[in-house]
Design a protein around this nucleic acid. Sequence first.
DNA 1: ATCCTCCCCTAC
DNA 2: TAAGGTAGGGGAGGAT
Length: 978
Amino acid sequence: MAGRAAGQRGDNGWGEWGGYMAAKKRKLEEQFDKDCMNNVQQHERKSNIFHGISIFVDGHTEPPADELKKLMMEHGGAYHAYYSKDKVTYFISNNLPYAKIRKLKPNDKVVNSQWIIDCIKQNKLLSTHDYEMYKDKTKSRGQTELNFKRMEPMKLITSDFNVPNSDDEENNSLEKTSSSSSETEEIQDEDDDHLSVLDAKHPKFLETFLKRSRLHYLSSTAVAKKVYVQDLRQKTEHRLLIDKRREELKNKLQRTERDYLFKLNDEKKDKIYMHIDMDCFFVSVATRNQPELRDQPIAITHSKGNKSTTSNEHQFFSRSEISSCNYAARQYGIRNGMYLGKAQELCRNHQAKLLCLPYDYEGFHIISDLFYNTVLNYTLDVEAVSCDEMYVDLTELIIYLKPLHPLTFVSLLREEIQLNTKCPCSAGLASNMLLARLATRQAKPNGQYYVEKGYEQEFISKQKILDLPGIGLSLLDKLQQNYSHHTIETCKQVQNLFSLEQLKTILGKKQGQTIYDMSRGIDMRTLSKDYLPKSISIDVNYGIRFQTFDELTLFIKQLSLELHKRLKQAEQKGKQLTVKIRVRSSDAPIEPEKFMGCGKTDDSSRLINLHSYIDDPTIIELETIKLLKQFHFIVADLRGIGLSITQLQSTTKNIHGKDTNGTRTLFECNQFRVSKPVISTDNNQNIDQPSESSVTRKRPIQQEQTTAIARKLTRHDCYTPGQIDPEVMNELPTQIRQELEEYLKNPPSLPESNLDLDRNEIVEKSFTQVIDHIDESVLNELPPEMRHEIAMAKKLRTIESKYPPIGGKRLVPITNPSNPTIKDKSNAFNVLMNSPQKQTITKKTLNSIKKWRTETILHEERNDPIVRNEQYVNQSEKLKQQPNIAGCTSLNDVKLMLREWIETSDEPNQIDLDLFQNYLIDLLNFYNAEMVHQLLIYSLLQIKTLTKINWNEKFQILINTVQKHFGQMYGGATMDLS
DNA sequence: ATCCTCCCCTAC
DNA sequence: TAAGGTAGGGGAGGAT
């Protein structure tokens, strides 16, 4: 729904990002300014006139809030992003709506922003008396006394004062709420939230944002629909329903000649695919009960669009994005994703008025479900694409109903959809998914189109390249660059102008082949019916405005919790965490064109491999902050952040004693299985009454049982979580608790955090300061001959940063080494590795650095846990304890457990392998290589004597990893395991 | 060669 | 004011 809109962003929507090519050019230019720009950010203290004064800015002011903030900081004052009655001295506003005024406390002072300007001008703290806009609100409700004495310098828009009439709804609510004056305090607090959920500093921001975000709606519902379709496929009762519906249809059919003539060639394995899609879904849903509105241009926006644009008043140009517009609006050139302001302008040019309707998310859900169920009543050969779009393989159904022309069926289906949803849809039919999809485009609005056999070539030739799925402006641009003399537009042109080899060279191997095939109408895909998530993530690139690292940390906590919630919901855990940040580009204004938008940013991401599969919010939070500290950016410039969990594993499969391969997990063999049964949820979903819960998977989690042997092994004295307050630990659900314990036993090794001498404060400093700071401190710890080398590299790097190499991309992190082992070194090491002098670094030097690092880490980890935050201290403490696996520490205990594990599993489970591997590495770090050696020898012997063939390969990988670790610690040596 | 990380692109 | 999320595919380029 929003796809092509994005493609047209160049001149609309994300205006500040500009066109693709423009951005490319800018990227090169901008780097030159970077260094100077960075220094401008610092707020120099100019005076102390506002000492002890703090302000809260509300609404539009002149100068804007950001400027006021800067002024306050420069002159010794404080600025609060959120109103707090305890902290804020003055409420700064030029035009405060009445609704807000009446919520003020009697002593609150609303002061015009001019006061700040005048104080600075006269370099002293002036009385606010003449600048107070509003006084003594408690005296009179409807008759607020406004003070406009010093009006001249400010742009006060009187009409913005929302003074209600006496019979206004506003007034009624006022009667209710202020009937008892003692309540004012509560109301105030409630209203604080309500007033100012503007940016991510606010505790309710995430919740509010997700609730309103159309893009979040699109992505979350797309996943939900895939899951829904997949779950339905498992249900036999649904198959019975399908049979019933098909029979009904058969009886209803009135076949014509067309139906009798239609033949599918079974031997050739002919297929019929349908792509079906609701027309301008959001608008159709919003108007489903007033279809008469549909003739006029309509758009779905957050803004009400009341302040219609007039050509001169750009101050009201709305940057609210149109998420969906109807065909009447499209006539005027309005597109999805366009700013409302621009759309209104286009409408005005045609003497039309754009009707703006709000989002009806509830309605979208209902209609989307009805749409899906209508189709799913006839077949389960469905691939969900999004809440309003799917692919259907009609082959089997058409054969079942034969003789029947597919279009006959589609007509009936679309009629039924129209009847059920009161919304139109369009469908495309063809022999493959690609052509079916393109046919839908042809069919819109409210139509259907069949690319018949024999007409495929003719059809594909005239299709636009940009309409091919997966081909956007960027890829088209790559093609275009090879033919500057004519515009490349159609598939025919691609067919004629590019050979397969050329395409592969230009676009890469896979994409080259894909576009070669697609431009010829070739598509071998079949419906993908097995939906398995590969990643679960959360991104916020709107409203990100932080002043301090603490504010950011608070937000990370919320993100982690939300991500945890999603992992739980999807019944997944993951082994890899990626953190992505967007930082304001140095050439972008502090505040972008779009309110609270991210503007133009430089993006970076980093990932960490976790030691076990996790979904715990605390771990996510801790690791995110660790990763975040590896970036070097100014907190105030952060404009977006994303967390992503990958390497997923289902928590409902493979966790029970026996999985499909008859494999037992190591957990199963450990003696501390104390989990309670998880209450299973009902799974009797009725297709005719879909609900959100029917969309989400709820599978019962079986109680893990302790085996007889495991029970024999049970001990009660080893269960020592240690790090966490036992009471808190006991409060946690069993699964989370075990996971947390496991995690704390095996914290991911993250050497850089140990050497990151910058620690907490760097993120709030400027880029250049940071480098100098770190390099200096690291340098002092290096051997003298290396110090020299680094100093040279540093010098060169400074030059490089002023005259960056063309195509240099990363602006945010100091370096961008791809290899994790290198990346994980100190910053000094990074500088070294990325310097032009790299070539002169000998292997010997590298090794000496490596050795120095290992020693330092060990030294730090083992002896110097002081300067860490709590968690890391705990991890360090942990290293002083004897490592254990599932509570076992003695050689015999571990051997017993291993034996049972190997004996009872045909094939080792990856989680267990990881667990065991981590344990061995812990032992190595504990200088107990002897035990590692014995355990490996013992395991190998067990695998051999029990003839567990399937163990060999995976276990060898584990051995290799352990050997590598061993080698790193003992100068390249390997353990003899023969 | 093949894998991994860090991107970028695309889609809804 | 405004709510620019997410999943997946794949390429570049370095490490192994």
